[in-house]
Design a protein around this nucleic acid. Sequence first.
RNA 1: UACCCCAUAGUGUAACGGUAGCACACCAGGUUUUGGUCCUGUUAGUCGAGGUUCGAAUCCUUGUGGGGUAACCA
Length: 559
Amino acid sequence: MSDDTESKLDFIRQIVADDIAAGTHGGRVQTRFPPEPNGYLHIGHAKSICLNFGIAKEFGGKCNLRFDDTNPQKEDVEYVESIQEDIRWLGFDWDELHFASDYFPQLYEWACDLIRKGLAYVDSQTTEEIRAGRGTATVPGTESPYRSRTVEENLDLFARMKAGEFEDGAHVLRAKVDMASPHLIMRDPLLYRIRHAHHHRTGDDWCIYPMYDYAHGQSDSLEEITHSICTLEFETHRPLYDWFIEQLGIFKSRQYEFARLNLTHCLMSKRKLLELVNAGVVDGWDDPRMPTICGFRRRGYTASSIRSFCKEIGVTRFNGLTDMVVLENSLRHELNQTAERRMAVLNPLKVVLTNYPEGQSELLDAVNNPEDESKGTRQVPFGRELYIERDDFLEDAPKKFFRLAPGREVRLRWGYFIRCDEVIKDADGNITELHCSYDPETKGGHAPDGRKVKGTIHWVSAEHAINTTVRLYDYLLAVENPADIPEGDNWRDALNPESLVELQDCKLEPSLKDAVPGEAIQFERLGYFVVDSKASSPEQPVFNRTVTLKDSWTKKSSQ
RNA sequence: UACCCCAUAGUGUAACGGUAGCACACCAGGUUUUGGUCCUGUUAGUCGAGGUUCGAAUCCUUGUGGGGUAACCA
């Protein structure tokens, strides 16, 4: 984050910089992050958060958190709380905390002003009639028969809407703009609807609730937001955003739009994510496969890797698709420097060192992080019986296979060279264990005679191993581009059936008993793992695989 | 077939009328007690057609392609 000033300004930061240079708003910069509390924040929101809070930080401005809570039927305090937690976890804090619902009285007054100016009216058509009257993209709308009600009548009706005299849907308040406008949004947009619903903050104070378009811009204006940054789908709302500000004669906030984040293999619709949660397809909003902030957190992602990812992808108006590997790489890049190394065998194959004394064991020194000498070393127990990865042995190995095979020698990481002498099988021909011999002269992994081995494999002492569960996560979505999923009820067919593979009886080196949730650990040669915050107990940690290490061998061998 | 927006290597992004760069991916080497990391190198791009200009990725026109907008959601 220290090289912010060196990087090129994206188009929004350029606008901010230009405004400061021109003295607009006296050089003041005020942004806001405006989530609706109807779901958990996801990685797409992280992009917006980094943008809004980042701009405030970089330009000496301020950024508010404002909940756009104008739809009581979908919103909940659970979301209000999780959103705040996630923003803080990402490393940001707001200057002021607001709720659009705090502005309901002011918004109501302004609506009355619009009525008095002849710019708003109560429409008593049904939903269907209103929709039909809006026309289509190519056909102009038709004016509502209620459009010419008098100011007095409108004022009276609107007051009675507020007073609760009418059923849901009986009336709405609409702006009087232009039913023939080529901008659909300007064809007398709705300002208020009647909803006899309990609001998570205002309780039963209101039974009329403002629509997004009417609430959002005015909330910006009330907070004197200088740069109101939102995603591209609100672009067509900008004429209306400006219209309200103009007609009301209030502080002129300006709206700027950028392209939302699309990630390969990631569902980014709150509605669909909610469906996954409700259907029990995933283990809650924080399931490690979810693209939510809390999901990534539980998965083992760091806040700083998400921040650097957001910086790397930039901010434009181009609607693209970012490859998930960019996010993965930003995490690998960080964790390579910071994560301590440990050894863990996920698919164990027993190895007996026939020439190692029975009942004996010893401690071997292992480097904690080759990228960071200050992390020091630890001691790993070694004995006659070990586990190695099944993938690290091949009975009929090709020449370029550097690992263990009959008659071949391999290095045990931080240990000895071993040679495979005998393959033991059960009645069905399955390999049950290997009998190997170790070379006592090669302790630590060096041969005094200078002979080389190409391969180094990880291992865990059978006697000392932690026996536990490890969860391997993969993309939740089998298809690469979420936009390719057809709309409809069958979209869940696009899910990856192997997004979670749970392995039992994994063998971990004993020092791993001290691992705590949130601490990233590299299992050597396998990937980065983290203790699951929910499934673990002090006696038995359960690990989540955050991301694999890059692997050029499986790629090469599968060709 | 209305209105608005967008188009630069495979992907994402720079170049503000003056040498088309960067990152990731890919491919090929090197180092290596992680087939990781790191280092070196290679491949690869301005959507098409006109116009303005000494000079266009950049400005204009137009075509093509992609996206958004027609919820009493945000």
